[in-house]
Nucleic acid binder design. Sequence first.
DNA 1: TGTTAGCACTCGTTTTGTTAGAGTGCTAAT
DNA 2: ATTAGCACTCTAACAAAACGAGTGCTAACA
Lengths: 348, 348
Amino acid sequence: MEIELDERKEKILYAIIQNYQETGEPVGSRTISKYLDVKLSPATIRNEMADLEEMGLIVQPHTSAGRIPTDKGYRLYVDRMLSQKQLPSTERDAGFLIRRVDRVEELLMQMAKLLAMNTSYTTMITGPHYRKTKLKFIQLSSMGGGKLLAVVVSEGNIVKNNILDVGEELSQEGILQLNLLLNSNLSGLTIDEITLDIISRMKAEDGEHVEIINKILDAVAESIQGDDKVPIYTSGAPNIFKYPELTGGDRASELISALEEKTPLGRIVLNGEGEDGDKKEIQVYIGDEVPVESMKDCSVVTATYELGSGVQGKIGIIGPKRMDYEKVVEVLQSAMAQMDAVFKEVPK
Amino acid sequence: MEIELDERKEKILYAIIQNYQETGEPVGSRTISKYLDVKLSPATIRNEMADLEEMGLIVQPHTSAGRIPTDKGYRLYVDRMLSQKQLPSTERDAGFLIRRVDRVEELLMQMAKLLAMNTSYTTMITGPHYRKTKLKFIQLSSMGGGKLLAVVVSEGNIVKNNILDVGEELSQEGILQLNLLLNSNLSGLTIDEITLDIISRMKAEDGEHVEIINKILDAVAESIQGDDKVPIYTSGAPNIFKYPELTGGDRASELISALEEKTPLGRIVLNGEGEDGDKKEIQVYIGDEVPVESMKDCSVVTATYELGSGVQGKIGIIGPKRMDYEKVVEVLQSAMAQMDAVFKEVPK
DNA sequence: TGTTAGCACTCGTTTTGTTAGAGTGCTAAT
DNA sequence: ATTAGCACTCTAACAAAACGAGTGCTAACA
């Protein structure tokens, strides 16, 4: 179902959308008349608007109000916009700078904060999931008291700790031996490549510490893929208060709750949809398209970031339907580029 | 300036406070008259109330409304309450259970969530600061590309990672040697005990890697005391929407912002005040006593938790002035006891 | 035939006015 | 010392009225 608009209707539609974005209030024919470069009387505009309304692109909230764009109207606008600017991006990373950080979490939180501040919307960012990341090495140390510290380092210098409770106290040599065993067998593999085959080979090779090897592998699995407890960080939640259409009544409460309760949006939107295939990097959900009940009045723009070598996660910008899609998309593209850069280290 | 009340006045004051806590609305003489066990007519109550008002313990928001407690009134009430129950605590840890966790951050976040849900208020929790914690050991590993991974483990099994950029590539032996040097010199010390003396001794002992040792020590310092960037976690922020007196107008926005912008409350209230000396564990800030502008309508109850061996941080419960102080104090005490328990591991 | 001016009409918002009720303080009686 | 009674005050809630923004339609116009 393709929608075709003559040029004038399109101009009017855009004018309505832009005006509505600025004010957040329904916009009437008189306003448009003054706003357009072409000189048209309010009456003419009204006729055109009636048509646009019939097409389902705009509505009036009540009889004697101006028009506001429908989801469908926005969708059209956004699609045009996206197809127009395609990829003139990636050159504009002068924008803002990220302090060099070593810890991924900090980087993510900084990024979220930055985006929230830059856009005046709310930002949500998921930690990366590592299924495609290669293990670099594992470092075992004894902590005394029958406890073992397993430090798992994977490509991109992602470091995770794990304390595990092995029943017995291991000797220094035993630990060294285990260390060697683990690294020689696992180093360079992704989590998915650690097959039962390899595991049983390792157990055979060692013979003695079968139980412990199991525990260690569990720990590795947990720290590397996080077992779908990928952390999610939010920033700029208070920004929603800038948009009355979101905070009217007790909607504010619901929204803030939905943001604190990160799961739904995080899982469904940010990770969601087919993970496979290289979708287009940037995705826009408008109003009803957002699969979270309490966010039907919002739009969400998501992007996939990559921290080198298949480690990827998602960023989402959450704002009112009248958000500045253009800016958000730009900013997101720039941010993606930067995240890429941070971990693409100068190979000395 | 001691305030003394005859028994009847006190009873009336308490009745007002309790009623106000339940309803959140000003309470009038008639209500109290019915509420009290002793039979007194509204008129009598009114007279007493006039007295209480003169003493600054209650006020009427406007001429023809009931009375509500002032900060001063609350203070009196809370003080009485605290002194009465002193420490009948620590026995009631049946309450709620914490899943055993290895990572401190997770424990803290879980705790915050739990408290928020249990109390219907907002919880803020600071990560611990480690100045008094002893170093257990340091584990260096090479990450290639001139990068070194330093894992710092301190008492209570707190693990921190740090990636550092040493210019050169170190040999496996060099790293082992450094490892040994660091551990033999630093193990068992607190951050404050690492003096210049020790440092120069180490440098002398090694001679070669002076520059690297410096970097490592920086990393240790940073990971161990966090350089006042102790993380702060918040949970239950949306709870404030349950209390109209906090969310009236756009106050909600300010409050939520203040909560997201963790610094002020975090630093001032939670860590703040003389860190020294063993203050009483639980502290209550009422209304104006809260040193954050946007929280003048709130009360904050803070407690200090200890994760064994001098690792301590603070928990704060933030709610309306009419919060259920009694319950909050109880819950906090119980929580503290549990956190203690979690890290007081069975010495096998 | 497309555009525009004019006008009657609609409907939400704001203002103003009215009322009801809760609560007080005071006085006088018990 | 307590209480009943009463006049008074002030707010919250509701209703009515005025306002105004915006529309759709019709008729005139280029």
